[in-house]
């Protein structure tokens, strides 16, 4: 067995966060390794972002010239009820999504890992992800239609009241979250599954020999060692959820009234539909700040920078 053993002794185990051999550093070699990524980062992310931040202090209609107006956009946002509404709605979406998606995906990953190892099952679960976001939204828009959707036919045929999935204020956001969960469940499960696979098998052996119950094994071994991947999954899901746009754009367009006017859609409306790009940029900067804070807290909280391998 050529299995790479991972029971590095604690002394060998260097937590990446610590700077043991300072001074020496690998700056040159590191530069070499990140150079290509750095080009992409600067050209296609950093520059546009800095430009966006600059525009958030201007009045700008995309087609005209930006005009510096200081923090006026931010002041207006603070008093904009639609912004606060969008923030609330988005948070609701994010929460439903995170809880559902992470829980389901973790469960599925464990099942894939322990019971259902077939590639076919994995492929089947990944199937929804093959469908583009917009198409998935359109498909469900149709399946869930109140008047002629097949789901409501089924609901009706078993004698339950039909549900206006997209049209009612209570359902609009949960429905969007469910569609997203449907599309991403298998994807997220696969990420976690990949993490499970990288947990050294001998740890399970030891646990077995010690007579640990499956639950104990899960809590004491699986969960801690899954931490980097779970941190990744959570952060990616949260960031992705905060940026929900496609599904809303092709289905409810923010309605009914303002019930599904999520942040990203509101930004889009302001920036492009209403040609208030400066205001849209300011909203985007706020969204960006929120995400950065959330991600920062998560990284700290989940110690996503570290592994518990010891």
């Amino acid at each position: 067995m050529t299995t790479l053993t991972r029971n590095a002794s604690p002394a060998e185990q260097v937590l990446p966060g610590t700077r043991r051999r300072r001074g020496r550093g690998d700056v040159k070699i590191a530069l070499f390794f990140i150079a290509p990524a750095m080009i992409g980062f600067v050209l296609f992310y950093l520059v546009p972002t800095l430009r966006g931040i600059y525009l958030s202090f201007t009045e700008y209609s995309i087609l005209g010239e930006p005009e510096w107006i200081g923090v006026a956009n931010y002041q207006a946002i603070a008093k904009d009820p639609l912004f606060w509404n969008a923030l609330g709605v988005t948070t609701q979406y994010v929460l439903i999504n995170i809880v559902l998606q992470t829980a389901l995906a973790l469960g599925l990953a464990l099942l894939m890992h322990r019971v259902a190892k077939s590639t076919i099952i994995r492929g089947a679960l990944l199937l929804p992800y093959l469908m583009a976001n917009v198409i998935a939204a359109l498909l469900w828009f149709w399946l869930l239609d109140y008047q002629i959707g097949i789901v409501n036919f089924l609901i009706d045929s078993i004698g339950l009241p039909k549900i206006a999935f997209f049209g009612s204020a209570e359902w609009a956001i949960p429905t969007q979250a469910l569609i997203n969960t449907w599309r991403h469940m298998g994807y997220t499960a696969l990420l976690i599954f990949a993490g499970l696979q990288s947990i050294p098998s001998h740890l399970y052996e030891v646990a077995n020999l010690d007579g640990a119950s499956p639950m104990q094994t899960f809590r004491k071994i699986t969960l801690p060692l899954l931490r980097p991947v779970l941190a990744l999954v959570l952060i990616v899901t949260i960031i992705g959820s905060f940026q929900v746009f496609d599904t809303v754009a092709v289905t409810t367009q923010g309605g009914p009234v303002n019930a599904s006017r999520v942040l990203q859609f509101y930004i889009y409306q302001k920036a492009f539909t209403e040609s208030d790009f400066g205001y849209g940029s300011a909203l985007a900067v706020i969204l960006f700040a929120i995400l950065a804070i959330v991600a920062f807290i998560q990284m700290k909280f989940l110690k996503g920078n570290e592994s518990d391998l010891d």
Partner: peptide, 20 residues
Amino acid sequence: LFLATMMVPPIFTALPNFLL
């Protein structure tokens, strides 16, 4: 910083990148 780029709303980047 790299991680933060994940949080940049795509609306920000599409237009400048298109211009570039």
